[in-house]
Nucleic acid binder design. Structure first.
Lengths: 155, 155
DNA sequence: TTTCTTGCAAACGATTTGCACTTTG
DNA sequence: CAAAGTGCAAATCGTTTGCAAGAAA
């Protein structure tokens, strides 16, 4: 699926969500959704807000928070609370997880091993009904591991 | 391994860590580690701090933060940033993941499917050297799913 | 005695909230 | 029109920081 197709799906889904919940379709909400698709993989509210301003489109921070929240609720975005600081968002797509270096904080993405994805489809968690999975592997990135040949800080 | 044995291991590990990093073995640090072992599964700094006060042991919030941080670094504790609010901590133990209800926020733990644990031992992430995994499955808990027979909010 | 720690309180920063004004349905 | 959404600024609240006093090494 292309980025463009993804975006169209996202708009559809957002529309459906707003209708189902009897929420209003304001221009701000769709402007934000559009901007979200122009952002790099991970972004915080601040960068999103700045990007909108840069395009000459002004929305209040409060509205940005509100809308992003709706986008997370309807499954278009995923929220990551990496370090305790700004939350990071990214377009929802399955099949990838985050490798987080405990020494330098670098975050890289890799595709999810199939065993892991399969897990979600099974009934392993009855009566819990899984929708999506967020997984974070902590350890040392290649660079830090090279600098510190002994072993990881944690385990 | 019993809770008691776990605690002894944790103290050992913390000691080794402090020595290796040339950090000091203050009574506050060990009092906090001890209290951590009396807490329920998940706790935040506030509850930890209150529990210490209740036992008549006073440490400043700053020290609590500092020590908890060291305990996370040395692998005795894991930090979870669930909702954007207070971080939650728990004693490190492998083999379990969190089910998070997107409707009511309830969090339950289940043991990790073996396929997932195995993943960590493989070289799947070279050159990244994995130490531990945190995984969160989002969806509807049994109760919320029952109340909302259609489907999950997100996917 | 040197350096690390602690406690306290002030500073920070991300997120939330209250309220008057618009806008959607 | 009624109800919801927006912008703004003030309020929250978890976490961090600066600094003087106290302990570990």
């Amino acid at each position: 699926m292309t980025r463009q197709e993804d975006y169209i799906q996202a708009v559809k889904r957002f529309n459906a969500f707003l209708e189902e919940k009897h929420l209003r379709k304001t221009p701000e909400r769709f402007a934000i959704l559009k901007q979200v698709w122009q952002m790099e993989a991970h972004f915080g509210i601040d960068r999103l807000h700045a990007a909108l301003e840069a395009e000459g489109y002004h929305v209040s921070r409060a509205t940005a928070y509100n809308t992003i929240d709706l986008l997370v609720q309807c499954g278009v975005l995923r929220r990551h609370n990496f370090s305790s600081g700004e939350s990071q968002y990214e377009a929802a797509r399955e099949g990838h997880l985050h490798l987080i270096c405990t020494r330098c904080g670098a975050i890289t993405e890799v595709s999810t091993p199939p065993a892991m994805s399969r897990m979600l489809e099974s009934d392993s968690f009855e009566p819990f009904r899984p929708a999506y999975l967020l997984a974070y592997v902590y350890g040392l990135c290649g660079d830090c591991a090279a600098r510190n040949p002994q072993k990881a800080d944690e385990n």
